[in-house]
Design a protein around this nucleic acid. Structure first.
Length: 290
DNA sequence: AACCCGTACAACCGCCATTCC
DNA sequence: AGGAATGGCGGTTGTACGGGT
């Protein structure tokens, strides 16, 4: 038998929401907060599925939603993040304040996806047609470094995997305990959580930590010698910028405060970091280099 | 005016991960 | 430990709307 439906469909309204339903939902959530979606419709007096309420709130009614056209800067950012992350719309949306994953997904499917197809069909790369910041969009040479990266397209997972288990902490342990901690990513995650750090962000790290991290991603010593400094710079850079606020400015990445990336002491090559995201799993314990 | 077609986007669906009991 | 409940995600569908014929 198939799975049971998320809620009984009988007697429930479907399709477009009315202004009245919106009002009821908004005022209920303002009064009682989000959550408990399944029981919310009953409590709020709505004839809607809880999932539908959640979606309506998150994608339309939330007060911090930014309505209106996607700006050029936002489009640029979406393209870059899609290059890096693939169809992980919620992650992409997380970098575009006020935009929802649904909105970005729709925008991609109706606009950017087509552009992208046309570009690839016409033989020009996305980087040249949609990415004016050539100094940043350096051609990655990861394929020469890892056979898996060479064998696969840069991004694109048809089935998205949620990044719920990034095991490197945002709050990097002090040097004296990092080595031991690195041997046990799970412990790192736990430590990070205990310290209130987010496990969904890249780590804030220092150059000394990077070689260990790169090893844990499967880089051998040659990789690290050849590209380690670059990766480390970019790795650090990613963590020094408040990405929630990071935007593209004049075709180039800037931090949330509008400062140029040069201020952070490195140039950002997101492509070169894609290998991190291509890792389906973080290193198993037996592969972790101490 | 009527029809067709393409576009945009809200809403739904099914699956998976996490949390709760 | 394990099953149910819940939340969240990406993919897909439905439909309103505008432009062209």
């Amino acid at each position: 038998m198939g799975r049971s439906p998320c809620c009984s469909k009988e007697g429930l309204n479907r399709g477009a929401w009315t202004a009245l339903e919106d009002k009821i939902l908004s005022s209920y959530i303002k009064a009682h907060g989000e959550g408990k979606w399944r029981s919310l419709p009953k409590r709020a007096g709505l004839k809607r599925c809880g999932k539908s309420c959640r979606l309506r709130w998150l994608n339309y009614l939330r007060p911090d939603i930014k309505r209106g056209n996607i700006s050029g800067d936002e489009e640029e950012l979406i393209v870059r993040l899609h290059n890096l992350l693939g169809n992980r719309w919620s992650l992409i949306a997380g970098r575009l304040p006020g935009r929802t994953d649904n909105e970005i997904k729709n925008y991609w499917n109706t606009t950017l996806g087509k552009k992208s197809k046309v570009d690839s069909f016409s033989g020009s790369s996305k980087e040249t047609s949609l990415n004016p910041c050539k100094s940043i969009a350096k051609k990655k040479d990861v394929e020469s470094k890892t056979s898996t990266a060479a064998a696969q397209p840069l991004v694109i997972r048809t089935k998205a995997t949620r990044l719920t288990k990034i095991l490197v902490p945002q709050n990097i342990p002090s040097d004296e305990n990092y080595t031991a901690a690195a041997a046990n990513p799970l412990e790192l995650q736990t430590q990070s959580a205990e310290k209130g750090g987010s496990t969904e962000e890249f780590p804030r790290t220092n150059a000394g930590d990077c070689s260990n991290i790169l090893k844990n991603f499967g880089c051998d010593d040659d990789d690290i010698d050849a590209k380690g400094d670059q990766y480390c710079n970019e790795f650090q850079l990613l963590n020094s910028i408040p990405l929630d606020e990071a935007m593209i400015n004049d075709g180039c990445w800037t931090g949330g405060n509008g400062c140029d990336l040069e201020d952070y002491g490195a140039s950002l090559d997101l492509d070169s970091l894609a290998f991190l995201l291509d890792s389906e799993e973080w290193p198993s314990q037996e592969n972790v280099v101490v």
